[in-house]
Design a protein around this nucleic acid. Structure first.
Length: 136
DNA sequence: GCCAACGTTGGC
DNA sequence: GCCAACGTTGGC
């Protein structure tokens, strides 16, 4: 199983909005970045990830899982871009802030720190576990 | 195919 | 509001 982190401006699309979609899920679309796209291509149904809020919040807020693997992005003009479908999972008991992530040596290599701009990134098992630990 | 200029994103 | 990082575009 692979682990992922999805980043979004909560004003645009928040974890709470995702949560409201319930088991039906909601496409994670609009990605126009090749690195992020490659990550999305690699996703499998059932893969687990985190939902991160950028902007004012800057914290990991909850879990999300892939409910449908890559399909053509309905918001794109051409079929070069893809979307996946996400389902919100549990909320973290407490959000894990970017400052905490940065302060944790176990998370020093996470792309959230090294490349603040990518919207979909992969996490190693140990990075995933560490964030779970910080958030519980 | 290279590189400078520009736009966008996100943190501070 | 500013700046850094990165991606994209366009001229050559």
């Amino acid at each position: 199983m692979k682990y992922w982190l999805f980043k979004s401006e909560p004003e645009t699309w928040s974890w709470e909005m995702q949560k409201k979609k319930g088991a039906k899920g909601e496409p994670w679309s609009g990605v126009r970045n090749h690195t992020a796209k490659l990550n999305m291509v690699a996703m499998k149904k059932g893969d687990l990830g985190f939902f991160y809020h950028s902007g004012d919040e800057k914290a990991v807020v909850g879990f999300a899982s892939v409910s449908r693997p890559a399909f053509p992005d309905p918001t794109a003009d051409d079929d070069a871009w893809i979307a996946v479908e996400l389902k919100a999972g549990k909320k973290l008991r407490r959000p894990v802030s970017l400052a905490e992530v940065k302060a944790d040596p176990k998370l020093a290599n996470i792309l959230l720190v090294r490349n603040g701009r990518i919207s979909v990134m992969s996490l190693t098992d140990s990075e995933f576990d560490q964030i779970v630990k910080l958030g519980s």
